[in-house]
Structures are given as structure tokens and as C-alpha cells.
Design a protein around this nucleic acid. Structure first.
Ligand SMILES: [Mn+2]
Ligand SMILES: [Mn+2]
Ligand SMILES: [Zn+2]
Ligand SMILES: [Zn+2]
Lengths: 151, 151
DNA sequence: GCCTTAACAAGAACAATTCCAATTTAGATT
DNA sequence: AATCTAAATTGGAATTGTTCTTGTTAAGGC
């Protein structure tokens, strides 16, 4: 667990490195996530992947998403109490949730910056991971709202 | 909604300012949260508040927590897919979740710093709120682990 | 080709939260 | 002080997203 997938190795190799097998279902779930740069829920992944593997079950989609996450091939994204989303972007980044249209955007970390630059940790906290999410209005929706207001 | 409770005004005033009433149940839920500087779940609040209001229902505890949050008197804290927690600290801060003992600690924002100092937002994103959570090992648990290792 | 074990499918179970309909209560109005 | 009305509470049912269970399928080492 927590072994990052190096860019050079294939997903097969990464999965094998965890003592697991690359199955059609895992491959299909992985491909669906890589195919779009968005953040689908498990059910959205399920409906997309059914086009390729018509008999896959939702339980298997959940299992695949869990194993892919455990192998470091995708990321799981939680926001408030909504259903989990899955992200193919392995770079360190935060998430922006547009409250108007629901889209999720990746927000990259500035080079050479760390969360500790902004939050003041008492000594001796050992941080193993962080999850940062922002809520607000995306540029697209802001533009739409501005246009509305002009009328 | 989103009207912050100024420190000078009482919870009654704040609630009235939102056109709502201060009831025994709301008062008791509020007092329970203010009574400890921790981050209880709804069920934990429920069991604590039952000491004072023995017949309160869990649904009411959820309702009270929602209204107190809407009035800005407490904060709701989400972390991964766990049950929601509630926080009496109105200062801007992040949360640290100890994976070993489960405690939640407040991590203050450094003065004059912003999340935007660390994350690079494409222009035109209007941020209305953010939630930042860290996972890892708290100092107490780190010390315990170190002691174990020494044996 | 056989065997062991991992992976999958289908549906049941689960936990947290929300919804609903009936009852109670706060506080305004007489 | 009694009455009235909308808001709040209650208890239980319903919902939702996710996990668990059990029987079946299929890799891949031998
Ligand atoms: Mn992402
Ligand atoms: Mn807090
Ligand atoms: Zn938007
Ligand atoms: Zn700890």
C-alpha cells in the first residue's frame, strides 16, 4: 500500500508488484478513468465501463476502484458527505467543487510549496497525507451568472 | 445562512437573527459542543446531550446540528467517508486526524496566510469555502510507538 | 489438463443520514 | 391568562452509498 506507481511502469507491472492480477474488469475500470480527465463517482464509472464489459457488477467496480487506489494508480476523492469520486491525476493537487454545475477541477500545488507553509502544525505531528477541497463557483458558471445579471 | 456569529452576540441572538427560536434542545446541543474542545459525531453528541434532555431524539440532534451550522455557531467537519463531526472552534483552521487513536486536532491557519499561497488557482475561480484535512500520527501516538520500539 | 486461490456476480446487509406524519411547544395575539 | 399558528420535535420508516456474503468463474503455476 502507498507505493506510488512510477510513470515508467505499466499498470500491469504496478498491480503485479502488489501481488495482484490484471483482469479485464480492472483494466476496463482503469481505462475508463484514464479516458477522461474528470472525477466520476463509482456509479458513473459503472455505467461507462458497462459499454466495454457489459456484465460487470457494481460490487466489482467498487472492488476494482479500491484495488487501483491501493496500488496508487488512481486517487479517491471525498468531499463533504457526497459520494466518493475517483481521479486519474497522480500529481499532488487539491480539488475545486463548483456548487453551481457540480464539476470538479484539479488545483495543482505551487512548486516547492507545502501545506505546512500555510497551516501551523504544533511540533511532532507526522503527516502521512492531506486532502484539500475548495467550494465555490467555477469560471464558466461565473460567466453565465454575469450574463444573466446583465439582462 | 453564512452569517458569522460575532463573538459579542449570544447564541440566542444569533439564532433569532436567522428567524429561528432557541429551544431547550438547541441550547443543550450547543452547550454539549462548547463544553469540550473535541469533535464528536452526531451520535456522540446525542449520548452526551441525553444526560440533560433525556427524551431528545437523534433526528432532533441532527436538526439542531444543522441549524447551528447554518447559523454559523458551530462547524461541520467531513473526513473521507467517515461520519460527520462537529466543531465548536469558529476560527479558521484545518483538521488533523490521527490514524492511530482517532482524535481530531485543530490546526490553525498561519496569520496572513491563505490556501491560495500554496495552491495555484487558474484565474476566475471564486472560492466560497475550503476544507483541509490531514491524516497521520499525533505526537501522543508517535511517543507511544517510539517507546514500544525501544523494547 | 489439474488445482489452488484470487477475482467476480448478485443480492442481502449495513450505517449514516434524511424524510415523514403526528404531536408538542414557543411566543404572538387576543 | 387562554387561544392560536407556525415552528420544532419525535419516533419510525425510507433512502443512499457502500460493504459483506455466498456461490461461481477463471488465472496461472504445476
Ligand atoms: Mn483530481
Ligand atoms: Mn475543529
Ligand atoms: Zn460551474
Ligand atoms: Zn493519536
Amino acid at each position: 500500500m502507498n507505493v506510488p506507481a512510477s510513470k515508467s511502469s505499466s499498470p500491469e507491472e504496478t498491480i503485479h508488484g502488489h501481488g495482484l492480477r490484471m483482469t479485464d474488469q480492472r483494466r476496463a475500470v482503469f481505462d475508463v478513468l484514464m479516458g477522461e480527465r474528470d472525477h466520476p463517482t463509482a456509479v458513473e464509472v459503472f455505467t461507462r465501463v458497462r459499454a466495454k464489459v457489459p456484465n460487470i457488477s457494481l460490487a466489482t467496480v467498487y472492488n476494482c476502484l479500491d484495488t487501483l487506489t491501493a496500488c496508487g494508480l488512481v486517487k479517491t476523492v471525498a468531499h463533504e458527505r457526497e459520494s466518493a469520486r475517483y481521479c486519474p491525476n497522480l500529481e499532488e493537487h487539491a480539488h475545486f467543487f463548483c456548487e453551481s454545475c457540480g464539476t470538479v477541477s484539479d488545483i495543482p500545488l505551487r512548486p516547492r510549496k507545502q501545506p505546512q507553509d500555510v497551516w501551523n502544525f504544533p511540533a511532532d505531528f507526522s503527516i502521512s497525507h492531506h486532502e484539500v477541497s475548495f467550494g465555490g463557483t467555477c469560471p464558466k458558471c461565473a460567466a453565465k451568472a454575469a450574463k444573466q445579471n446583465r439582462n
